[in-house]
Design a protein around this nucleic acid. Structure first.
Lengths: 205, 205
DNA sequence: GAAGTAACCTACTGCTGGTAAGGTGGACTC
DNA sequence: GAGTCCACCTTACCAGCAGTAGGTTACTTC
């Protein structure tokens, strides 16, 4: 009636940072599971155990939430690859270590990876440039690794090569999901063969 | 009132096939312009000069419409590359011709290309497998072109190489949109350098 | 324990994908 | 040239989801 009995709304309050992490975690799962379009903010809110306006309080929009998830995933990916590269001796070794870290990430964090693939849905929004910038960092890292093998003056060519490598590896990552007997190490060797040969050809001209 | 004056509903009737083409054409433009999520069926219908239920009559759903657009674009892309490859003499020449056709397509049919990039939004739907199959045809074509350079027994490796090339070129295509002074021919040479070196390394092991 | 604030909720709006049910006009028969 | 058929097309609606207004509750601080 007009006096609804007070349901024991056992609310758990949480510090902001912690809530945010939790929301991103759940959203990542839901987006990966249903796809961006089919995922509903109501469902995400419910799974978090929080009401919808909270999501908007934290992320402003559905796109904002997706962006936060992608940002998180990309940061994680960037961290593991950089970590791997730093410990390596020599350019070839660094390349191999970076690739291995990448393909391991793909295997271990399937959800995060599938999210990154959805970044296309953000083109045309205000988030587009941030996404593009993050992606640029990734190719720049590769370009740095390779730059020793190029004439320094030809920066456009180095960029092109880096883009090619990134695209090739991303596609390879999608492809090898279908073969679970394919270890990250094996795929790394495939990639090394393909791209290292290309680099050597370029340096010998 | 209850007797709405007959607005001169200047309807143009059209044979089914022609309407369908027209719808796909408009939808391609709208999807490319706004992105899939932001595009509205109402707007597409209005631009075609037809009512919304007609779109559903023809394509069943928004996803169906997107699928039809992508199918069309991919068919077009496949046609131009195959055409280019057929006329070539020798494997290297065929590869180069195919790449050139691809990068020209990207330049001339920007809309179609941007649509193909949105195919990720269809994963998890019934259309997913058709998309995957179409894509497979593309890599198979590449794999065939390259197979002369591999030990026949190692088909997995050939597949991996083909995937790598496709991914690399796709990323290169996105990248070179930012540089309008970059001709398709120039980008083709970048790609040839990168992938041909890789192939030669593989054959020399 | 009163005041203040950060976290949270209920209850709504408007838009868009999708549908039901019916109108209309060209083509074909006779 | 009147009747009939059917493909084409429409208006008018529903359900569900992104996004919001405004009030409530628990925790901290003094």
């Amino acid at each position: 009636m007009s006096t609804p009995e007070k349901a024991p709304t056992r609310r758990k309050r949480m510090p902001r940072a912690q809530r945010e992490r939790q929301m991103i975690e759940v959203a990542e799962a839901v987006f990966a599971e249903r796809g961006y379009a089919a995922a509903s903010m109501d469902e995400i809110a419910e799974r978090v155990g929080v009401s919808k306006p909270m999501l908007y309080e934290y992320f402003n929009s559905k796109e904002g939430l997706l962006l936060a998830c992608i940002r998180e995933a990309r940061a994680e990916l960037r961290h593991v690859t950089e970590q791997a590269v730093v410990g390596a001796a020599g350019a070839e070794d660094a390349m191999r270590a970076g690739l291995r870290a990448f393909f391991r990430f793909i295997r271990d964090r399937k959800q995060a990876w599938s999210l990154v693939r959805h970044e296309i849905t953000l083109v045309g929004t205000s988030a587009a440039e941030e996404i593009e910038a993050t992606r640029q960092q990734q190719t720049d890292l590769i370009a740095t690794l390779m730059s020793g093998y190029f004439d320094d003056s030809d920066t456009v060519r180095v960029q092109a090569a880096a883009e090619f490598v990134v695209g090739g590896c991303e596609r390879l990552a999608i492809w090898c999901e279908r073969y679970d007997e394919l270890t990250p190490e094996a795929v790394t060797e495939y990639a090394m063969d393909l791209l290292w040969g290309g680099l050597q050809r370029l340096t010998s001209r």
